[in-house]
Each structure stands twice: as structure tokens, then as C-alpha cells.
Amino acid sequence: MNEVIEKAHAIGADIETGLKRCAGKEDLYAMLIGTALKDKNFGILKEKVAAKDVDGAFEAAHALKGILSNLCLYPLADELDEVTEVLRGRNLPDQKDMEAIDSQREEYMKIL
């Protein structure tokens, strides 16, 4: 088993489903995990929340939620789902939620 995938599994990723979505291709899955974690929308989300731009923040969160859920990178994907729903209700997320996203993403980044 690919090392990245094994480590992602240890963090909480549902690698069985994730791999299935990649037609069982480990290399592809590992590559997509890397691409997803480096997505520019993480930066955009932070900026937009700081600027209190609810619409902009929602777009970024929504996009991140989409790719992370596709790859089953939990619990980061769940965190993004929560933030997306908060933004959909036209509220800004708590600092706590934003920090949780940061820390979980850092956790994942370590495996790359």
C-alpha cells in the first residue's frame, strides 16, 4: 500500500471509498490527496472570512468541501462541510472552526 494513503488512513480518511472513486489506482489517489491539500481555496477561504466576504468564502468552502469529500479526507472534509453550511446561512464561521481546519490540514500536510 502506498505510504501516503496508509498515513491518510491513520488520520481518519476513508481510503476504501476514496480508492474506489479512483478506480483502485493508488498512485492517482495519492496524487489527488496532494493536489487537494495544496488547493488555493484554503488561502482564499481565510482571506474572505477575514474580509467578512460571505459569498466569496462560501464559494471557496463549497469547492473545498467538494474535493475533500470526493477523496474522503475525514475529518477535514466534515469540518469544511460544517463551515460551508454556516456560510450558506449567511453567517461567518467561528474562529474555532477555522482553526480546526488549519490544524487538520497541517496534520494531513505532514504525510506528503
Binding site: 479512483c22 478506480a23 492517482l28 496524487m31 493536489t35 487537494a36 469547492a63 474535493i67
Partner: peptide, 13 residues
């Protein structure tokens, strides 16, 4: 799709 991950996932199929 604006997300590369999504394009690659579908493209793979």
C-alpha cells in the same frame, strides 16, 4: 470543473 481534483477523478473514469 474549476477543481483539478474533480476533473482528474472524472477523467480517470
Amino acid at each position: 470543473d474549476d477543481e483539478e481534483v474533480n476533473r482528474l477523478l472524472l477523467g480517470n473514469i
